[in-house]
């Protein structure tokens, strides 16, 4: 690129356009399915069902969203109202995100700042769980949760997902960048471990907490397998589960228009979180100045 800039007349403009074209192509590939979803949510079920969905908005938008939002009876298939599912998803995503942050920041604080016997053993135990995806331990976890009577409850939905090695590691790495002298200055100032945590470590971690919150909220919102196992009643369904259940299974046709509307609604909270917290998120990822 520098060579092009040094000699702009030898096709420099063209060379600048190539990356833009590639980026635009990428955006199109990403955005087109979403566009189709949004358009689909504005047509009636019959139009979509015929298989040739127009690429321009239809007139059924308000009807579709209203019925997806609050009615449990579509034209063809039963479904849980989206407002209930969205609420469930929101509770799950928030509890998981905040719970993960709370647990992992405390354990990272212990691992990074304290010298205690078996410190590295504990650290490695946390580290190793990174290699165990949820799916591997899902049967025993289900057994435990079922025995505790937590099926169909928010507790059962969230608690097993709260422990987070990733967040613990991220916080630990960040804590290791806090200079020893700062810890020592606080010691001389008379700040105990808890005081130092609240007065110094937490404020310094703000941007990291924000960045993690964005990532973990989306992680929680998009959970599929675990809620699928743990929720039985319609009242506990999350929106990701709900969408798949709305797809008809052959006996009845599918209300594609409602599914599209539900999908669009399901996308909004993560988008809102990203947009609202974008500034913090980027700062948390790139900011080295604390």
């Amino acid at each position: 690129m520098t060579r092009d800039r040094a000699n702009p007349r030898s096709g420099g403009r063209l060379m600048d356009m190539v990356p833009h074209l590639i980026l635009m192509l990428g955006v199109l590939i990403f955005a087109f399915p979403i566009y189709v979803t949004v358009i689909g949510s504005t047509w009636d079920a019959a139009t979509i069902g015929r298989g040739n969905l127009p690429l321009t908005p239809g007139g059924e938008m308000l009807n579709n969203y209203a019925s997806a939002w609050s009615e449990s009876q579509g034209n063809r298939v039963m479904h849980t109202p989206v407002r209930i599912m969205m609420w469930n998803s929101l509770v799950m995503a928030l509890v998981i995100a905040l719970g993960k942050i709370a647990i992992s920041i405390i354990s990272a604080y212990a691992v990074a700042f304290f010298r205690f016997p078996l410190r590295m053993v504990f650290f490695w135990m946390i580290f190793i769980t990174l290699m165990l995806p949820v799916e591997v331990r899902i049967i025993p976890t289900y057994e435990v949760v079922a025995n505790l009577g937590l099926i169909d409850s928010y507790a059962g939905l969230t608690i097993p997902l709260i422990a987070s090695a990733t967040a613990t590691l991220l916080f630990r790495q960040f804590f290791l960048t806090i200079p020893d002298e700062l810890v020592e200055a606080a010691k001389i100032d008379g700040a105990g471990a808890l005081r130092f945590f609240v007065d110094v470590v937490l404020p310094l971690s703000r941007t990291n907490i924000a960045a993690l919150f964005v990532i973990l909220f989306i992680y929680g919102w998009n959970q599929y397998l675990w809620p699928l196992l743990i929720t039985n009643s319609a009242e506990m369904e999350t929106v990701v589960i709900g969408i798949t259940k709305m797809i008809g299974n052959g006996e009845a046709a599918t209300d594609w228009n409602l599914i599209m509307a539900t999908t669009v609604l399901a996308m909004l909270p993560p988008v809102a979180v990203v947009v609202l917290m974008q500034r913090w998120f980027v700062k948390g990822l790139v900011d080295s100045e604390k």
């Binding site: 200079p179 002298e181 700062l182 020592e184 200055a185 606080a186 007065d199 110094v200 404020p203 310094l204 100045e289 604390k290």
Partner: peptide, 9 residues
Amino acid sequence: FQNYALYPH
């Protein structure tokens, strides 16, 4: 301290 060790926030 050599690096001042001020509380940055």
